[in-house]
Nucleic acid binder design. Structure first.
Lengths: 223, 223
DNA sequence: ACCTGAACACCGTTCAAGT
DNA sequence: ACCTGAACACCGTTCAAGT
């Protein structure tokens, strides 16, 4: 529930066992939850995933462990919420880009989507990396599934709207495009994220996507 | 060292802290290590990552925890070794495919490399998935870095050998191709790996790579 | 020489006792 | 009503005591 307070647009269902047990109705509670949230990211970045313990987060947030467990039923719920926030930021960026460049030529749409994805992911490289590491311990099937559906739901109409191309199998192409974007970005960001690797990614990934979309579509006369 | 016994072709340097502390010189020791290895995978698949404890692995392998710590200085060394074995299998498959299809037209090389990668990863989908989950807790920068270099060292000459294409920036293209392959496959395999998702991946990933390689190269007359 | 497993430090989680 | 933090079960790791 608190997740909905923080992200009222949320469309992804949260598994019952991962739901926070308490709805912060008062301003003070909301502040506490926010402090816990911030503390989690700070400890993760400063101490690393292995030292991200409930005690340390509580200490940094200025509350007792007991209090923390009133808001998050267990450690995983905490990580889940942080990951969710990050993924929804990315999803929003993609939705915005899709809406903005609808009706443009395919090459433009492709380039803009790639740029939007890379921008969203590289805006806080450190946080992205840390969250990839943390996500492995979580049951993220539903969360990732929901975000994926949301992103694909934005990509598909954007591709369909291209002024100079049409797709026979829009769903497969949307799926493939999302997976290529997400997978490739992760493969580079998760480890070093060397600046040279990032440079190559920014140069080559647009070529990959444009070439693919072109190969997977048929031309059509602009109307 | 024991890793070298198990995989004598190993080219990747193992960080000092992750090295097993004991070299099994006798057959009995090698058998013990192998039992620990098998037990790790079994426990991981049957009980899941959270229940993968040193005690459980030792019990299943039929040794005491103390004995296990003679061979692997800590739990991470165990996981590291298992992951390493898996990645080297994939690297071998890629090297074999690269050698086998050298000199062929670019489209053939591309399709075969994609097929080789997907085959290697999907041969044991369950193990692949389980290892992705486990890898998050490990310091895999060196391991992944070494394997990546090895795979790119095979991909680059294969691409250069294409009978009908030549590349201006071979390194960037090899890098991008490897990252697209690895990232995309992971994005699909890591979660559900629905059979429908796998079908789309097998159909679209070759199109992605072929279109990209074609776009990133110039044609040349076969000699 | 090699193996064992109780013991230790530390983790996630709970809940009686405080305010 | 809400917060606290000692207590509990369990984990990774060690090392004195066995063989």
């Amino acid at each position: 529930m608190i997740l909905q307070v923080l992200h009222s647009h949320m469309a992804v269902p949260v598994p019952a066992t991962l739901k926070p047990r308490k709805v912060p109705r008062q301003a003070r509670s909301a502040a506490t939850v926010d402090a816990i949230f911030q503390a989690t990211i700070q400890v993760l970045l400063k101490e690393g995933a292995p030292r991200l313990t409930t005690t340390r987060v509580a200490e940094r947030a200025g509350v007792s462990v007991g209090t923390m467990y009133q808001y998050f039923p267990h450690k995983k719920a905490l990580l889940y919420a942080v990951l969710q926030q990050h993924l929804e930021t990315v999803a929003e960026a993609m939705e915005a880009a899709c809406a903005r460049y609808a009706g443009q030529p395919l090459a433009v749409i492709s380039d803009r989507l790639v740029a939007a994805y890379l921008d969203a992911k590289t805006r806080q490289v450190a946080t992205s990396r840390a969250l990839y590491a943390v996500a492995g311990e979580l049951d993220t099937a539903d969360l990732i599934g929901g975000i994926s559906r949301r992103v694909q739901g934005a990509i598909a109409p954007a591709l369909a709207s291209a002024s100079d191309a049409r797709f026979d199998d829009l769903d497969s192409v949307s799926f493939a495009l999302r997976v290529v974007l997400a997978g490739t970005a992760r493969a580079v960001l998760e480890r070093g994220a060397t600046s040279s690797a990032l440079v190559i990614l920014r140069k080559e990934l647009p070529v990959v996507c444009r070439a693919y979309l072109c190969a997977a579509s048929k031309p059509r006369r602009p109307h």
